[in-house]
Write a protein that binds this DNA or RNA. Sequence first.
RNA 1: GGCCCCAUCGACUAGUGGUCAGGUCAUCACCCUUUCAAGGUGGUAGCACGGGUUCGAAUCCCGUUGGGGUCACCA
Length: 502
Amino acid sequence: MVGHRVRTRFAPSPTGYLHVGGLRTALYNYLFAKRMKGDFVIRIEDTDQSRRVEGAQQNLVRTLEWAGIVADESPERGGNFGPYVQSERLTVYGEYCTRLLEDNNAYYCFSTSEELEENRQLQLKQGLQPKYNRKWLPEEMGGSMPSGEIRRKLEEGAPYVIRMKVPDYVSVWFEDMIRGPVEFDSSTIDDQVLMKSDGFPTYHFASVIDDHLMEFTHIIRGEEWLPSMPKHLLLYEFFGWDPPKFAHLPLLLNPDRSKLSKRQGDVAVEDYIRKGYSADAIVNFVAMLGWNEGEGTEQEVYSLQELIDKFSLERVGKAGAVFNTEKLNWLEKQYIKNRPAAQIIDTIRPILVEELDKKESVMRRETITGDSYLSQVIELMRERVGFEHEFVTFSSYFFFEPETYEEEAVKKRWTPETNDLLREFMTVLETLQPFTAESIEAALKEFVAPRGLKAAALIHPLRILVSGVSFGPSLYHMLEVLGRETVFRRIERGIERIVVSD
RNA sequence: GGCCCCAUCGACUAGUGGUCAGGUCAUCACCCUUUCAAGGUGGUAGCACGGGUUCGAAUCCCGUUGGGGUCACCA
C-alpha cells in the first residue's frame, strides 16, 4: 500500500435521503483523499433490493455535489474500476464466493428463517448468546453435515445461503487510525451470511471484495461498523489480500446522546437545505463535528478548500458529537455577513419573483427585482437575517406595503401630536434634494430641534409607518432605498390606518 | 446480556506530566445605539468517580460508574 495513490470511498445505499452523518462521512473521505492528492469514489450499495428507493441514488449524488463533494469516480461519471453499483457486480461476487467454498472458508446453509428463529429463541431461553448452530457445517470442515446431504439439497434446488466459516478461538487485531489498536476474539463472531438466498451478497461480503478490487487504500466509515471488523478482516485473510487502513469515525448524536436519528429532529441534509442553510455553513459545521485543526488556531470558519488543506485523520476525535444546530445558525450568519451581494441575489431573486407572482406589489417589479435595488437591501439587512430567504420574508417591507402595524410599538411610540408632526415633516421631505440617508437625517434633526423634540419622536413612528414593524436597519438608509414615492405613500396610508388607542 | 468504543463548561472543542484548564456557540451583564441586529468588554459554567505511578497529574496505568454502538438472508 505504501506509495500507492490514496483512494477513498463513500458507499451509501440508495434507500432515501442523505443523512447528515453520511454527509460527514463522505466529507471526511473526500477531504482526506483530496488532501493526499488522491481519488474520492462513490459506490452504490444496493444489495438489498427490498429497500431500494427510486431516484435515491441520483438524489444522493446531487446532494453531495451541492455540498461541493464531487467524486472522481461514480456510477454517473464512470471510472476504471466500475461498475460502481453493486447490483451490477453480481458475477464478481459469485466468483469470489466459489473460491471461498472451494477453500473451505465458506459453506452452504439450508436452514430456514423459521428454523433460525427457533434456534435463537432456544439459545436465549438457555441463557446463551444467540449464534448460528452450524447445523449445515460440512463434516470435512469440522461440522456434522454429511456431504451427501448437502449435495442432495443442492440437487433438489432447495433455497440456501452461503456462510463464512469463522475459525474458532483466533484473535483478530487491527490498528484503527483514529482509535489505535483494537482486538476481537473470533469466538464471539457468528458465521456471517455472505450470499443471500436471492443470490445477492450481503454488505460484509460485497464491500470487502469491492474495496479490494477498487483498490481503496483507506476505509473511513462510521463507528457502527467497528463490531464487524473481524468478519471483514477474516475475509481479507481468506483471500490473501492486504487489508486497507481503517478509520472509524465517532457517531453524530441526538441531544440525548443516542445515535442521531429521525424523530428527535431533522437528519436529512435535504431538510437543512430546505430550511435555507447554505452548503458553506453545513459543510463547515459538519466538518467541525469531530475534527479540529488543533492547538495554535482559533479559527471557526473554514472554506472547503481550507478544510482540504488542513484536514488530517490524526486530528479526528474519538468521542461522539451532539448535532446541535445553535452553532450552525451562527455559522450561517457569518457566511451571510461576508458573502458577495451578487451571489446572494442569485439565490433570493427567484424567491422574490415567486412571492411577487403570488402577491401583487404596488412597487415597480423591475426596480425591486433589479441588481441595484436588491444589493442595497442586502447591505442593509445582511447583519440582521439568519437565512438568505429572510432577505425576502423577514424584510418583506422592501417589496410589499405593510399590511399591519405592530400594535405594541404603535402604543409605545404614538402621542396625540405624532400624526400632525408626521404631516408637517412630510412637507419637508417633499422638497428634499437629494433624497438620501444623509439629507434625510439632517432634515429630520433640523425639523425636530426648534420644537424641543428628540429625533426619536419622529424616527420610531416613521419606521413603523414605513415598515410596519419596530425593528430593522437604519431608518435613514431604509427611507433612501425605498425612495421618496414609496415613503410618502406609506406615511399617508399609515396615518389613516393607525389606530391610536389613547 | 456478550463483544467493542467512548468520557474536559449546557453544546463543539484546545490540552498529550508542571496552564489561573484556553477558544467558539448558547446564556447573563454592561458599552455602542433611533429600533433590531452586528460589534466591543466582562461574567456564570467543565477535567464522572476511586485507586495507583510520579516531586507533580485533565494528561500515564488499573478499576468503578456512566453513555453509546453492535450482536439479521439491513446497510
